[in-house]
Amino acid sequence: MRKQKIYQIDAFADKVFSGNPAAVCPLDQWLSDDILQKIAMENNLAETAFYVKQDNQYQIRWFTPTIEVDLCGHATLAAAFVLFNHENYNENIIRFYSPRSGELTVKKKGELLVLNFPTDVFEQVMLSDEITSGFNIKPKLAFKGKTDYLLVFDSEDEIRNIVPEFEALSRLKARGIIITAKGDKVDFVSRFFAPQSGVNEDPVTGSAHTTLTPYWAKQLGKIELTAIQLSERKGYLQCSYLNDRVEISGQGKLYLIGEIYLE
């Protein structure tokens, strides 16, 4: 019987029971993909992050309960929180490497953890019936990025009160759907739905802000932005647009340290 350490961290949260929970498993070496997926399915969180130390960096992978994904911001923040606070990492910057998304860094800045991710590339698409049938309110603009759709609405109230049709959304060929509008008290607000990836609504989606940040930076004419993801748990983010890179900042809070028993 092998024991595997597991942490659960609330990411983009200033207190426990807010933000987005992610599981983190530090590994000495990679387990089989089947075991990684089964651990993520058993955790039943939006994402579980696994990492292995390789030379001066950490290779990282992310799994939802049903699939491996290309990029996950909140679980990367959670992994960095674990390294900085519980796994004896003493430097001020962590270099992660994802086989699917390249180099990703996380820097410690007081209580904030600053993710540095590649900016998404996206283009405007038609507002097809397939897209608009997913919500009870029609968006005014639609864009398609590397993995997600971005739908722009008129107001924060629309984002807060919108009713998703998950069956319709699950038929869209994408990781998920970001909806957004200009914020009342912050620069922009959003929500994120990914039924086709095993997550109906994600509480806080760091990777979605690689699309949201460049969009709103250009719309608002500023490179430093504040954001709230308006899920039930809510997430608070600070974002910086650096052209081909995006910085996404937030806090993490420890919820759980445990052990998995693997036969």
Rank of each mutant, 00 (worst) to 15 (best):
T211W: 03
E232S: 15
G102E: 08
Y255L: 15
G252T: 11
V69K: 08
G250Q: 00
T132M: 12
I67P: 01
Y149I: 03
W62T: 02
D157W: 00
P203W: 12
G258W: 01
P21Q: 07
E47Y: 12
G183L: 13
F192T: 02
T66W: 05
A208F: 00
P65E: 08
N90E: 13
P21S: 04
L242A: 01
Y261D: 09
E103A: 03
F153D: 07
P203L: 15
A227R: 03
E224L: 04
M41Y: 13
I94L: 12
S190C: 02
Y51V: 10
V69A: 12
V114K: 07
S98E: 05
L151F: 02
D157H: 03
T211Q: 11
R245L: 11
I260S: 03
E91S: 10
Q4M: 14
K140I: 15
H74T: 09
T210R: 01
K53W: 02
G110S: 01
E111L: 01
A22P: 05
G198C: 07
T180W: 07
A80T: 10
K222M: 11
R233D: 07
A79F: 02
V106L: 11
R175D: 14
Q251T: 10
T211M: 10
K140H: 12
D14V: 06
S133N: 15
S170I: 06
L225M: 13
T211N: 07
I177E: 03
L169R: 08
I228T: 14
F143W: 06
N243K: 09
D28N: 15
A168I: 13
G110C: 04
A75H: 12
A80S: 15
G134E: 13
K140T: 15
A40E: 01
S133C: 14
